[in-house]
C-alpha cells in the first residue's frame, strides 16, 4: 500500500517536472518574442525619434501599460500556454506531495526530499496566486526554472524512503513551523526574482543593457521595486512568525527557546538581512538598486540555509534524512 502510493507520488512528480520543462520553454519563447517584438511595437516612436536625435532617446518613450502592444488583454498565446502548463504541472506537483503525505501518514515535510518537494510546490503556488493581484507572469522563467532544478536535485540527490517521524518531530509545530517557513520562502523567491528584473531594468533605463529588449515590455524599475517590496514584506512577516514558532517548539522539544543552533543562527541572519532591506527602503541613498541587492542576498541566504546548512552544518535540525 505504502509502496504503491509512494510510486504514484513519484510518477506524479516526474510528470510535473516534464510539464514544468515545457512551461519553462514556453516562458523563454515568450521572453524571446518580447525581445523581438518590442522594437516593432515601438517602431513608430523610434522611427520619429531617430530623425530627431539618437536612437536611444526613444527608450524614454516607454509604453505606459504593462501589457505589450498587439497582444490580447490576457497576453500573447505563448504566455497563456506557459501559464496553463504551469498550472497543470503544479497540480501534479501538489498531487505528488499529497500522495507522499498520505503514504507516510503525516505532513509531507519531514526530511530533505519532502521539504524540497513541498516547499517548491508552495513557491509555485505563491507565484500562481499573486497573478490574481498583479500580472507577474514574466517571472515564469525564473519560477519554473527554479522549481525544475529543485525537484531535479530532490529526486536524484535527496530521495529517501518513507520512514516514521522520530519522537522529537512528533509535534503540531512541525505542521505550522515548517509550512509557514516554506510559505515565507515562496514570497522571498518572487521578491528576489522581481529584484533581479529591477536591477536589469535600472541598467536598461540608464542606457545600458541595450540587448535586453524584452525589458521594455516589463514595468519600470520603480514600479518593480514597489512590487518587490510589497511581496517581500509579506515574506518578512511570515519569517518572523517562523522564527517565533520555531522558538516555541524548541522550548517544548529541546528545553530552551533559543540556543544559537546553526539553523537558528541562519534563520536569525536571514531575518536581519530582510529587516535591513525594509530599513534600506526607508533610507535615502539606499532605495532602488541597493535595496534590491539586499533582497537578492536575503533570498540567497534562505537557499543557503535550506541546502548547505541542512546538509553540511552540525546542529539539532539534523532531519535531512541523508
Amino acid at each position: 500500500m505504502i509502496a504503491t502510493l509512494v510510486s504514484y507520488s513519484l510518477l506524479s512528480v516526474y510528470s510535473a517536472m516534464a510539464i514544468y520543462t515545457l512551461a519553462f520553454i514556453m516562458f523563454t519563447i515568450d521572453l524571446a518574442r518580447r525581445s523581438a517584438s518590442a522594437p516593432v511595437a515601438l517602431g513608430a516612436v523610434v522611427g520619429s525619434a531617430v530623425t530627431v536625435g539618437r536612437g536611444s532617446t526613444a527608450l524614454l518613450e516607454r509604453l505606459t501599460t504593462d501589457a505589450p502592444v498587439g497582444a490580447t488583454p490576457k497576453g500573447p498565446r505563448q504566455l497563456r500556454i506557459a501559464m496553463a502548463l504551469t498550472v497543470i504541472a503544479w497540480l501534479l506537483h501538489v498531487a505528488g506531495a499529497v500522495l507522499r503525505g498520505v503514504a507516510a501518514g503525516r505532513v509531507p515535510w519531514a526530511n530533505m526530499f519532502e521539504f524540497t518537494l513541498t516547499a517548491t510546490a508552495i513557491v509555485v503556488g505563491v507565484f500562481l496566486a499573486v497573478q490574481f493581484w498583479q500580472d507577474l507572469r514574466f517571472l515564469g522563467v525564473f519560477i519554473t526554472g527554479f522549481a525544475l532544478i529543485a525537484l531535479g536535485i530532490a529526486t536524484t540527490n535527496f530521495y529517501v524512503d518513507v520512514i516514521p517521524l522520530p519522537p522529537a518531530l512528533q509535534s503540531g509545530w512541525l505542521v505550522i513551523h515548517v509550512f509557514v517557513a516554506s510559505l515565507g520562502t515562496g514570497f522571498f523567491a518572487i521578491g528576489a526574482a522581481i529584484s533581479i528584473v529591477q536591477l536589469l531594468q535600472t541598467r536598461r533605463e540608464a542606457g545600458q543593457a541595450k540587448r535586453l529588449k524584452f525589458l521594455d515590455t516589463l514595468p519600470s524599475a520603480e514600479r518593480l521595486e514597489v512590487l518587490a517590496f510589497r511581496i517581500i514584506v509579506i515574506g518578512f512577516v511570515l519569517w518572523t512568525f517562523t522564527l517565533m514558532a520555531g522558538a516555541i517548539w524548541a522550548e517544548r522539544a529541546w528545553g530552551r527557546y533559543w540556543g544559537w543552533d546553526t539553523k537558528e543562527v541562519w534563520t536569525f541572519i536571514i531575518w536581519t538581512i530582510f529587516a535591513g532591506y525594509i530599513h534600506a527602503r526607508a533610507t535615502r541613498g539606499w532605495r532602488g538598486s541597493r535595496s534590491a541587492v539586499l533582497a537578492i542576498i536575503g533570498f540567497t541566504a534562505v537557499m543557503f540555509n535550506f541546502t548547505i546548512v541542512n546538509l553540511f552544518f552540525k546542529g539539532l535540525h539534523a532531519y535531512s534524512g541523508l
Partner: peptide, 25 residues
C-alpha cells in the same frame, strides 16, 4: 544609515558562530 549598517553588520557577525562549534550549544 548607521542603524542599517549595524543591522547588516550583525547579520555578518552571526556567521562565524555557525561555522565553528559553540561552547553553549
Amino acid at each position: 544609515r548607521t542603524a542599517l549598517f549595524l543591522l547588516l553588520l550583525l547579520a555578518i557577525a552571526a556567521i562565524p558562530g555557525s561555522l565553528v562549534p559553540q561552547v553553549s550549544s
